[in-house]
Amino acid sequence: MTGRRPCALGAVALAAGWLLAACDGPSGSGQEITLYNGQHVQTTDALVSAFDKATGITVNVRSDDEDTLADQVVAEGAHSPADVIYTENSPALEYLQSRGLLAAVDPSTLAATPGRFNSPQGEWVGVSARVSVLIYNPSLIAVSQLPTSVLQLADPRYQGELAIAPGETDFQPIVTSVAHAYGTAAALTWLEGLKTNAGSHVYPDNETIADEVNRGEVAFGVVNQYYWYRLAAEIGADNVHSEIAYLAPRDPGYVLDVSGAGVLRSSAHPAAAQRFLAFLVSKQGQEIIARSISYEYPIASGVSTVQPETPFDALQPNSITIPELGDGSQAISLLQQAGLL
């Protein structure tokens, strides 16, 4: 663990100060922090706006793919203008942590999120979660014909019917989970089978998969659940021609992805940056996520989603842990060897 955490009395004082600011109005007028945002704008914009209103601290947002931002932080080193990085998935944060670029998160902030969703070293905090699913078009494939295990995605009977987005960072945890469960050799063979089955249906992102399946261009694909819910919200129920299904409980392809945030060790505004992390996992921040069109699951401060999706407690993902998902490097290597990157 890097850096020093405040003593218990200091943590209580910090928490009390934040709560007082939230109740009595902004106390950080004139302060600014820079956020490197690898999250979807649907998730980030409302959180940043509410934080600014509650604290008076302006958040300057730079958005890009989380891998791009993580590499940028590494390249910038101690001179990075970023104060906070906010990502869709844990591997990017684990990568920065392994390079010694993240600061310890305030204990009171970490305590708001169940420990299994945080950095084991305490250097980033879990904010929300999503889960991998199959999106399918019932006019092209019946639910009874869908694979129930991730390995079945490589079955030749699905040739030409499968859509994947291997360049998406959302896909990396699935690859890592397969390698963890079955070994790297089996994972590579599996990826080669996916490449064959997908054929021309290898897409740049999950939004494209959701759209193509919904339009009947391909039978089914692998996405995180929120892409389907967002699609339905955007195009209206009458235009939804697809559904989602889950793999068998605990299957290695049934992966829970945690989105999180960390403070850069090089931050010029560490106190304000820590306040932003505390806000993300506060009741107010989590309720914004619970009600937003991001369709992510809030995971902190006891808040549950109000959106009409499978309750978080009813999900049955694989038990792979944050440390076992690692920094994504194994998945990237396997995807490259399979010719999917």
Rank of each mutant, 00 (worst) to 15 (best):
M1G: 06
G17N: 11
A22D: 13
E32M: 02
N37K: 09
Q39H: 11
H40V: 06
A46I: 05
V61E: 06
D64W: 14
E66Y: 13
D67E: 11
D67A: 10
T68Q: 10
V73M: 06
A75N: 15
E76A: 12
A78I: 00
A82I: 05
V84D: 02
P91A: 07
A92H: 13
Q97Y: 08
S98A: 15
R99H: 15
L101Q: 08
A104S: 14
A111Q: 14
G122C: 06
V125W: 08
S132P: 00
Y136N: 05
V143A: 14
L153S: 07
A154D: 12
A154E: 11
P156F: 15
Y158E: 03
G167A: 14
T169L: 12
Q172P: 00
I174Q: 09
T184W: 10
L194F: 14
T196R: 15
T196P: 08
G199A: 11
H201Q: 14
H201N: 15
D205S: 15
D205N: 15
I209M: 12
A210C: 11
E212S: 14
A219D: 07
F220L: 05
V223M: 13
Y226W: 15
Y227S: 00
R230P: 01
R230L: 05
L231Y: 12
A233H: 08
A233R: 05
D238M: 01
H241G: 05
S242C: 13
S242K: 11
E243G: 09
I244S: 06
Y254G: 00
V255K: 04
V263N: 03
S266W: 01
S267K: 01
H269V: 00
A271H: 03
A272M: 01
L277P: 05
A278E: 02
L280F: 03
V281Y: 02
I288Q: 01
I288K: 01
I289H: 03
E296C: 03
P298R: 01
S301N: 09
Q307L: 10
Q307K: 15
P308G: 04
P308H: 07
L315P: 02
Q316P: 00
Q316D: 01
P317Y: 08
S319Y: 04
P323V: 04
I332C: 00
G339W: 12
L340R: 09
L341V: 02
